[in-house]
Amino acid sequence: MNITWDEVTIDRLHHFEKVLPLYDLVFPIEVREPHEVFMKGLHSAKTRKPNSFRFLVGLDEEQLVSFATGHYLEEVNAGFIVYIATNPKVQGNGIGSKTLLKMEELLNQDAKTAGNPNLETIILETETQDMVHTKEEKENCVKRNQFFERNHYKKVKKFKYLQPPLHQAHGPVPLNLFIKSLQGNESSIETIKKIIHAIYKEKYYLVNGIDEQVLKDSLQKMEQD
């Protein structure tokens, strides 16, 4: 399969609508953001430099095979991958790993644009088995975690991570947090917590528009646990 890569930007939205059905299919409602949040992220890519938002699309001719989104966080020189998914029709061809590597490449470019030699860390959230609803979703959850481990991401086990509520009717959502150090050294808990604070600020406050007090409460609850 010959994958070609393209990016959705605020000025180039021609693949945007193609991604949304796959996004809605793959991710549980608890971690699925309203579609307009993507648009806010694309706007932020223009206004928050050297912070960035990447919306990567993988194509085989005109067929969508994968997508990924992520933020570069200049304050901590880290990348935050928000979503990554492969079209179920073409899974098993190494597409997920290729998509992940391409996203890492783009985030590393952002780090260099910000004046750093290289990106230091990449971090991501993924659902836990407790939040899935069907046997198929549970199997997919296990496969997703194994996928990240194969790609050299390590699960953070020293504290329980909470994603702030994406929907007003829900509270904070316990998720697995995976991290990959690109410099060969293991990230300390203090470093991980600094990255989480940057994620809460750049992603969940400035892009998602979650109330500041809600974010403070989520951080406080996470640190207490």
Rank of each mutant, 00 (worst) to 15 (best):
V57C: 10
T121N: 11
D225E: 15
L175M: 12
K221I: 02
V132W: 15
I195Y: 02
T191P: 11
H35A: 14
W5D: 11
L101W: 07
D24L: 14
L177W: 01
S97M: 08
V156Q: 13
L215V: 05
Q91T: 03
T134P: 12
T121I: 13
F148Y: 08
V173M: 15
D60R: 06
L64R: 01
F27D: 10
K143E: 15
P164I: 01
K89V: 01
K160Q: 15
K203L: 05
C141H: 06
E202D: 14
I189T: 12
K180R: 11
N108K: 02
F178M: 12
F80N: 03
K193Q: 09
S52Q: 14
N151C: 11
E223C: 13
Y72A: 04
N140V: 00
V214S: 09
L73D: 02
E139D: 15
E136K: 07
S97I: 04
P164Q: 03
L73G: 00
L20N: 14
N108G: 07
K89T: 02
K102L: 10
L106F: 10
L106Y: 05
I196F: 11
L107Q: 02
V8E: 06
Q213I: 10
P117Y: 00
K216Q: 12
P28N: 10
I81G: 07
E136T: 04
D24K: 03
Y205I: 01
I122F: 09
N116R: 00
N116M: 07
H14Q: 11
P174E: 01
S187L: 13
F80H: 05
S181V: 01
K155N: 05
A198Q: 04
V31A: 02
K193W: 09
K157G: 02
V132E: 09
F55T: 00
E212D: 13
K102S: 09
Q168H: 05
P172L: 04
S97P: 09
E33Q: 13
T86Q: 08
N176P: 12
V173T: 12
Q168F: 06
E74S: 07
Q168N: 07
N151Y: 07
F16T: 00
K157Y: 04
K112G: 06
F16I: 01
E7F: 08
A85F: 11
L219E: 10
G41A: 15
K154I: 08
F159A: 03
E212I: 14
K112R: 10
P28I: 06
P21N: 01
P50C: 02
E7A: 08
E202K: 00
E137G: 03
E36I: 06
I196Y: 10
S188P: 12
V19S: 12
T121E: 10
Q224T: 11
E36G: 02
T69W: 09
D225Q: 15
A85G: 13
N51K: 00
E33V: 04
R54V: 14
F27P: 03
R48E: 14
L20Y: 15
I123N: 12
L42G: 03
M131W: 10
L215D: 12
P165L: 01
M103N: 05
H167G: 09
Q63G: 11
H14C: 11
D110M: 09
K46N: 06
L64A: 05
L206N: 07
K216G: 06
L42S: 03
T9Q: 13
E30R: 00
Q183L: 07
L177T: 01
N77G: 05
